[in-house]
Amino acid sequence: MSKKNPEYDFKWCPGCGDFGVRRAIEFAMIDRLEETGLPMENNVVIAGIGCSGNLVHLMEGNQPYGFHGIHGRSLPIAFGTKMARPDLNVMVVAGDGDFLSIGGEHIGPQAARNLNICAVIMDNGVYGLTKGQSSPTTKLGEITSSTPYGKIEADLNPLELYLTLGVSFIASGFSSQPRPLAELITQGMEHAGFSIVHVQSPCTTYNDTFEQLKGNVKKGIEPMLWNIPEDHDASDKAAAHDLLQQGGIPVGVLYNDESRPSLDQQVEQMWEKARPQSVEALMDAFKF
């Protein structure tokens, strides 16, 4: 929505990490517009359900196309849009609950296909919109509204999951750094294949992790976030895996495999083998 819409009554809580993610996506889209000359309507943002999904309604300025669908299904909707129109820039915005829990089954197939889209995942380690239930990335032992005696399910490391499933571009970012985050999103959009930019985007109401993420010298809290060193070879899967064993949350481009063709490129190559026939010719196969 380009102007304040009096009918739209959804608000993010003050300080929500998603504000920074929205800003970063806007930066990346404006940069793309300036660089390619393609109009804003060439962008399509497919959203999941939850606080994060509302990002599509809160974007300012020129509006991209948006699809605010159903819980967990942003990836296959994006698959349909991208394969119908490979010329469009298709993005997914979703949260950790939407993308990793109910929608988790869709990540593997798109990674195998190397679908050429960029997914920006806002991870706050909690279900915010339904008021604070535990999500796949909620830490083990954490007390939430749905884990009154502490979470007994192990927490998921999404970056490890993406690497294992074969996602061809994996970056990790932080919502409080919109400019560097925008650069990661731009790289993801430009990557010819499936890219995920996984963003730490804390929930100030139910799971405020800003302090843990950034650290606090006065309180003696070490920051969880650390920058991936410049000499990290992102094309090296084993190196990416090693980074993830170092604890905390690395920020930057973790993995970037440019050797695989994207799904739309592979489909185009297939046309060399598959010759389209007219409907009349197809009917001829049944004549006698």
Partner: peptide, 24 residues
């Protein structure tokens, strides 16, 4: 409207207003 062309809007699975923004 068709993506790529004019008239960008929000296709929305929540009840929406005439632009496609969620409303109740």
């Amino acid at each position: 409207p068709i993506p790529g062309g004019p008239g960008a809007y929000m296709a929305n699975g929540s009840e929406h207003d005439d632009f496609g923004d969620t409303t109740h």
